[in-house]
Structure formats: C-alpha cells, structure tokens
C-alpha cells in the first residue's frame, strides 16, 4: 500500500470514529430503539466503497467498531457486539448492492442503513435472546430517511472531492 493511501485511510478512519462518537452525544438517538442511529459514520464507509474497495471499507468499518469500543462503549460489551454485527453486514450488503444492482449511491446507502439495523437485531436475537421482531418494521421505516440523508451527503461530498482530489 502506498503511503498516500495509508494516510488517507487513517484520516478517513479518524473521521468515521469522530462522526460515530459525535452521534452518540445526540440524546434523541439513545435508548429508544436499540441500535438506532443516524449513521453518519456510514458516509465514510460509503465513500471508501466507491473510491477505494470493499476490502478497505471492511477494514475501516471493523477498526472503527473497535476504536469506538475502546473509547466509549467498552470492548466486548453488549453495544460493541451490536455495532460489530451491524457494521460487518452493512459493508457486505452495500458492496453487493453497488456491484450487482442499478441502485444509485442513495439506494446503496438505504440498503446499508437497513442492513446495519437488521444486523444489530440479528445479534440481539441470537446472542441476547431479546425479542425484537416488533421493532423490525420500525427499523425498516426509520432506515429510509437516515439512509437517504447519508446517501445524499455522500453523493455531494464525493462530487466535490472528485473535483478537488486525485485519488
């Protein structure tokens, strides 16, 4: 890996951690639905999928989960595993959606948002035996505005970056 790419990825990682932590300060999104978030960190992951590769996105995503775990929620705590499940599944789903469908960046973002929540619900059901089927419907509906928002922001950012930076 060339040094330029390493430093860029490190910066993007730092950005995603900051966005993630910033988000957890918004009280509105804490504790109403387990795992429900605006998903601003997803902007970075989405960008990396489009600009670099699936592998890099997965790497950043996993590192982000671990870093946030160390910094805020505690490693191997319940919310750590929720984030891990959501992060892995959403990266995979976004990559597949980008590669095999005609969805635009906004559609891919919606898929990421949905799979992120679903990943968390799956973790909750499998490992903690919490009944959240009822939340599934609401998680799906909530994923729409957050997914569209994240997708739109990513699209605009990418447009600007494409013009100013040579990747």
């Amino acid at each position: 890996m060339e040094i330029k790419k390493i430093s860029r990825i490190a910066m993007l990682l730092a950005l995603s951690v900051v966005l993630n932590i910033l988000e957890s300060f918004m009280p509105l999104f804490n504790g109403i639905i387990p795992g429900f978030k605006l998903g601003l960190a997803n902007i970075v992951i989405l960008l990396v999928i489009y600009i670099y590769s699936f592998k890099d996105a997965l790497l950043i995503s996993l590192l982000r989960v671990f870093l946030v775990g160390i910094l805020r929620t505690g490693l191997f705590s319940m919310s750590f595993f929720f984030s891990l499940g959501g992060a892995i599944i959403s990266v995979i789903v976004m990559y597949l959606a980008k590669k095999f469908t005609k969805l635009s960046i906004i559609g891919v973002s919606i898929m990421g948002s949905i799979s992120h929540t679903l990943g968390q619900i799956i973790v909750a059901i499998i490992f903690y035996n919490i009944n959240m089927v009822y939340y599934m419907a609401w998680a799906l509906i909530l994923a729409l505005p957050t997914g569209i928002l994240v997708g739109y922001l990513t699209k605009e950012i990418k447009k600007t970056l494409d013009l100013s930076i040579k990747w």
Binding site: I32, I33, P145, T146
Partner: peptide, 21 residues
Amino acid sequence: KLFILLVIFVAIIFGVVFVIK
C-alpha cells in the same frame, strides 16, 4: 440545500421517534 435537507430529515426523525416512544 444540504442544510435545509438536514433540518427536514431531523424533523421527520423527531416525529417518528415520538410515535415510536
């Protein structure tokens, strides 16, 4: 445009969260 969009989305989410609560 981004700012207006953000405000609208946050408003929608507030509404949905209220219902869900």
